[in-house]
Design a protein around this nucleic acid. Structure first.
Lengths: 181, 181
DNA sequence: AGTATTCTGAACCGAATAGTTCAATACCCG
DNA sequence: CGGGTATTGAACTATTCGGTTCAGAATACT
């Protein structure tokens, strides 16, 4: 049920989605919706929570061996490209941050930290210590950019290309960085 | 007047902004608003148009000499970090694309093309031809990422750092690319 | 000063919104 | 089969929304 609600919030945001759409998408009518959730905000928070919990990001980033391979997987697979919805619900939601309930903001912030820590472990495996912060930041910024851009045009081929170009840049920097060190 | 409306749409999006907020922000009441604009969608489109027309992006990207210096300026200055609003209205709006009037989608798409062409001219000045497409794509993706992330935390210092780290990566790639060629 | 014009305030409208209630119905399980 | 439990449909409320109308006040022009 939450899984059915996720795409609605994904596409339209919290403010742009109405409960009729949620009824249609979930197949549950208003009575049912409001017996399970307190209000629309609550539905959003729970959908977002489920999205973050079931998403592949942390799994990908913690698979062994740690390293840039995981980063590439993360950038390739974590943003969705399924037509119905594209990019990432959490990234999309940071755009709506001004209208989000506190609980949702906290979810996003907390998961950002967790995800960043997971990214960091992979970066530490390949970069000298003094570059780790910057590289992590670049990866996250790049991920956000991919996710937003996917809303406008979700081209799977272009996405693959883009990730590979970024990884080339990163790998180049990693090897030259090690050489210098 | 449009200048006063821009921050409202910026923060709350088209769906999340209501006309009361637009009245308060512009200091013009509903009567005045609706005598000048057809409807809320129209206000949004005109605000977005003005934003794109008056923004610094194209000016920065076409200043001489062309090159990565312009790209750095663009990444540093084009995203706003003014507390009231952060990032970029156009990038924010791509997240709301599903609810935007056609005219707005066209504005965004067209300006994306124009901006990308301007980026390209700067990239061509420093990169071998076969890397230009990829580098342009990376720059745009990075820009989008910066803008979205600014919604959550708009830290000017972190922003500077981030841009510089990206530029190091890019400059490293440019010199090694030329060396190979 | 007098006239034309613009802008404002406030009332008003219909539609859509989130959210509630409850009788009827379907379903499940003993 | 029968009784308890979910689930539904639909009517209903209250509020907010975008948008309209228009008389009056402020403003500008001559």
């Amino acid at each position: 049920m939450l899984d059915k609600a996720i795409p609605v919030f994904w596409r339209y945001g919290l403010a742009g989605a109405n409960v009729q759409q949620l009824e249609a998408a979930t197949g549950v009518n208003k009575s049912g919706l409001y017996s399970e959730f307190e209000n629309k905000d609550d539905m959003f928070v729970e959908a977002l929570r489920r999205y973050l919990e079931t998403g592949p990001a942390l799994r990908i980033l913690s698979s062994r061996p740690l390293g840039l391979g995981n980063i590439e997987q993360f950038l390739s697979l974590a943003p969705a490209f399924s037509g119905d919805y594209a990019g990432c619900l959490s990234v999309n939601s940071t755009r709506d941050i001004a209208l989000l309930p506190d609980a949702a903001v906290r979810l996003i912030s907390d998961f950002n930290e967790t995800r960043m820590a997971a990214i960091r472990k992979n970066v530490e495996a390949e970069f000298p210590q003094d570059q780790v912060d910057d590289v992590c930041d670049l990866i996250w910024t790049f991920f956000s950019g991919i996710c937003i851009d996917a809303n406008l045009k979700a081209d799977v081929g272009a996405h693959r290309n883009r990730v590979q170009a970024f990884m080339r840049l990163l790998r180049g920097s990693a090897s030259s960085g090690r050489a210098e060190a």
